[in-house]
């Protein structure tokens, strides 16, 4: 299963981004193979519609779970129809690596 984690930077030592739609990077982690893919978010500075565009981006990677600090109002129904689970994790100090460690435990 693939999990998307929002990240503020390009490495696994970066902290969790507290926004989903306008997060800087998405870290796609595969729980079966342990593989990691880091995607820059092209919608980072979008004025409108960043959430749905980001959903399309991560959905194209066949992600089943998204971990972020907050989700916007337009996203909920979209993710429901795509059967993607949302996890709200409000710990801005945590690094992406520590979240991956929690997932693989």
């Amino acid at each position: 299963m693939k999990v998307a984690i929002t990240s503020t930077g390009q490495s696994l030592e970066s902290t969790l981004d507290q926004r989903f739609g306008r997060s800087a990077f998405f870290v796609i982690y595969d729980t079966e193979t342990g593989g990691v893919e880091i995607l820059p978010n092209p919608n980072k500075d979008a004025e409108e519609g960043a959430g749905p565009a980001s959903v399309r981006l991560v959905a194209s990677k066949e992600v089943k779970k998204i971990i972020s600090g907050e989700f916007g109002v337009k996203i909920k129904s979209l993710l429901d129809s795509l059967q993607i689970q949302m996890v709200v994790y409000k710990e801005p100090e945590k690094t992406v690596q520590s979240v991956i460690d929690m997932l693989s435990k």
Binding site: Q83, V87, Y89
Partner: peptide
């Protein structure tokens, strides 16, 4: 771990936290 999560499968109650298990 104090996280919040939803369940796409509405009728099933989750048994484990999707983050920390």
């Amino acid at each position: 771990c104090n996280c919040l999560f939803n369940q796409p499968e509405k009728s099933v109650m989750p048994e484990k936290c999707p983050l920390c298990g």
